[in-house]
Design a protein around this nucleic acid. Structure first.
Length: 499
RNA sequence: GGGCCGUUAGCUCAGUCGGUAGAGCAUCUGACUUUUAAUCAGGUGGUCGUUGGUUCGAUCCCAACACGGCCCA
């Protein structure tokens, strides 16, 4: 590393703050030992605060703490500061008499600098647990001033683009991502406890299948072929069930080449799981147990506040068919919800456009998605989705118009989608052909014919049920987050020119 | 894709009925041994998002563009 003091050609482009801090860094380098990595803390702020909430800190052994200086009050020959570590903040108290040169150095350390301190915990006369510093060292120099201490960082754009600043300045953001981690850990533990094995399937696929969405395309140089970032892992997970992995799950990213919104990010996290010898009703029961357990584990309650509403996971979840849901919200709905002419009249009465290529099932879904979904506030399973819009789901034994499928809604949003799997290879082949026909009339999201997958089914997929749960949306719900960008550490942003 | 709103110091924000800009915090200097949005005194800090237009003069008015936010599709 070139550490020549003062040799910073970029200085003229930088703010005075950065120049001043670089000068301090130069001085630190000149002393030798800049950027050390030999300080080992043996305590954390939150843990110390908890331990001595009642107990007398005078009886504590000296502690070593490391963290970022986030506030500083120098009063002549004594000073207070707060340092922030991964767990929280703790006050430190420094006096000139015992510290000497270290005290003079401390006075020139900046907010944002990362330091290590050693000292005795005590309580100040206002009762705040603090550490009386016997020794302190600068561990990392901060060259760029932190956002203002009182208002913090509120600019949404900077919060998303520089998430590290958001994390430094906003403790609720740290708490949110800790909670996200606990949610995902719970999902894993829940499924593992039921005999599921976690697997990883391809993110780059020769055909992007398993969902209806536009994919991202990339290129493999050595093979000189296009590859698609996956839109779903579904068809690979079911191949594994063919192979005898009878309970599998995957928690990983999907990629969909769509617009950005408060509910959509191009890459998002899905949990998908498949259970042989189970049907969609078994998965509804499992989902209900999972969500109740998750709320209790992570929130300690099944009553979840979300954006001014309260969602109650403690009651048995409502279950209704698509047609029942439509009728419940539209008393004036036509008697026959499978007649295309009646549905077209219904759509125009509701002021909804009729997209080309849709038959009765597709028209039903248009009504449902545009007018009913948003009203489903309390936990609700909606079942009996039309076969037309469910190309991978098993047809119902008594009613071939529908499939043995459900979606789960809460707070007006789809959180999960599950069904008894279509394991009849000939029916699957016919469904793929219908999808290809939809492509022919301009539906770019319709599926391709996946011959390799049909071949796998021909070896025999046991009767199976599978489900996908949108992890980001689940995290939004359990953190009361209004936007998906709030629960993704680095949400997709348009690049901003720096030149 | 459409509508509305925003972009001014490192951060949070004022402001200029068009005459090249202010506050608080931060930062620098000084004072101060129990502070905690510490306090007190003094100082530094800005191509007012970008590009064009109107004008004697634009950060302000107009247009386009960029990025972001909210709502709608």
């Amino acid at each position: 590393m070139d550490a020549r003091a003062g040799a910073h050609p970029e200085d003229k482009d930088e703010s005075r703050h950065i120049r001043e801090r670089r000068a301090k860094l130069d001085a630190w380098r000149a002393e030798g030992g800049a950027y050390p990595n030999d300080f080992r803390p043996d305590a954390q702020a939150a843990e110390l605060s908890a331990r001595y909430a009642q107990a007398d800190p005078a009886e504590a052994a000296p502690v070593r703490l490391a963290g970022r200086i986030v506030s500083k009050r120098v009063m002549g020959r004594a000073s207070f500061a707060h340092i922030q570590d991964g767990s929280g903040r703790l006050q430190i108290f420094l006096e000139r008499a015992p510290l000497g040169a270290t005290y003079e150095a401390f006075k020139h350390w900046d907010l944002g600098d990362i330091i290590g301190v050693e000292g005795q915990p005590f309580r100040t006369k206002t009762g705040e647990l603090s550490v009386r510093v016997a020794n302190a060292r600068l561990l990392t120099k901060n060259l760029r001033p932190l956002p203002e201490k009182f208002h913090g960082l509120t600019d949404q754009e900077i919060r998303y683009r520089k998430r590290y600043l958001d994390l430094i300045m906003n403790p609720e953001v740290r708490a949110l991502f800790h909670r996200r981690g606990r949610i995902i850990a719970f999902l894993r533990a829940f499924l593992c406890a039921r005999g599921f094995v976690e697997v990883e399937t391809p993110m780059m696929q020769p055909l992007a299948g398993g969902a209806t969405a536009r994919p991202f395309i990339t290129h493999h140089n050595a093979l000189d072929m296009p590859l698609y970032l996956r839109i779903a892992p579904e068809l690979y997970l079911k191949r594994l069930v063919v192979g005898g992995l009878e309970r599998v799950f995957e928690i990983n990213r999907n990629f969909r080449n769509e617009g950005l919104s408060t509910r959509h990010n191009p890459e998002f996290t899905m949990l998908e799981f498949y259970q042989a010898y189970a049907d969609y009703r078994d998965l509804m029961d499992l989902t209900e147990d999972l969500l109740k357990g998750l709320c209790e584990e992570v929130l300690g309650t099944t009553r979840v506040p979300y954006q001014g509403r309260e969602v109650d996971f403690g009651q048995p979840f409502a279950r209704m068919t698509v047609e029942e849901a439509i009728r419940a919200h539209h008393p004036q709905a036509p008697a026959d919800l499978r007649d295309i002419a009646s549905l077209e009249g219904f759509l125009s009465a509701l002021g909804l456009p009729r997209e080309p290529g849709l038959e009765a099932g597709g028209l039903q879904m248009t009504v449902f998605e545009k007018t009913v979904e948003a009203e489903l506030t309390q936990p609700t399973f909606v079942t009996a989705y039309p076969a037309e819009v469910s190309p991978l789901a098993r047809r119902n034994d008594h009613d071939p118009f529908i499939t043995d499928r459900f979606e789960f809604f809460v707070a007006g949003r789809e959180i999960a989608n599950g069904f008894s799997e279509l394991n009849d290879p000939e029916d699957q082949a016919a469904r793929f052909k219908a999808q290809v026909a939809r492509r022919g009339v301009g539906d770019e999201e319709a599926m391709h014919y996946d011959a390799d997958y049909v071949e796998a089914l021909e070896y025999g997929l046991p009767p199976t049920a599978g489900e996908g749960i949108g992890v980001d949306r689940l995290v939004m719900l359990l953190t009361d987050a209004p936007s998906i960008r709030d629960v993704i550490l680095f949400p997709h942003m348009r690049p901003k020119d720096h030149e």
